[in-house]
Amino acid sequence: MAVQTGDDSKPELVICEHCDSVYQRSPLPAGAVARCLQCGAELYRNRRVDLDTMLALTVTSMIVMAIANAYPVVWMDLGGQSRSVTLWGAVLSSYDAGVGLVAVVSAACIFLMPLLQIAVLIYVLVPLRAGRVPQYFASAMHALRRMQPWSMVEVFLLGILVSAVKLAADAAISPGIGLWGFALLTYLLTLITSYDLHELWDLAAEEQS
């Protein structure tokens, strides 16, 4: 949480979200992270938001996301037959097999949440880059924060690996394009979610004043 003390767009005080200690904000060297002295939680970091880079990474994520979802992640050969599975194949098969919750959780955490994260970020970044604050900016920023813990592309990537190992004893397994898509998407999402969203709040406040 940040406390606004004057009319400046940059808050002067920072409150630790994990123990309520209050700190005076001081400038950090580039790439440094400020941590709470009492409980060790991260307070803020100096990762200057470069809107161009961030937007470029986000748009790239959207393209990679489309590729990752459109192509099979694994191929399996057994008894002269060859089969592959996409994320959506896995979701629909689970649904048809009667485990609806597995299907819903998979669709939400691997597809819907990452997709919304990327879309909302583009919605926020494009106007900010043009020097405007988008309508519903606050709601969009809250949504980004809420969605973060439910976005699990990296866990799915590990899931693909585990599935392949489980099958490798009995069948020939080979990676699909979707696997590389999800690997790249994991990397890109890690990059774009490591930005400190407070920086965007500061930028928006500067635009509005």
Partner: peptide
């Protein structure tokens, strides 16, 4: 959220492994 691993593995295997009588 890493605990979701096995859930995703089940979804993947259910989607992939349908080889009639073989598996």
């Amino acid at each position: 959220h890493w605990s979701m691993l096995d859930v995703f593995v089940v979804a993947l295997l259910v989607g992939l492994v349908h080889f009639r009588s073989f598996a």
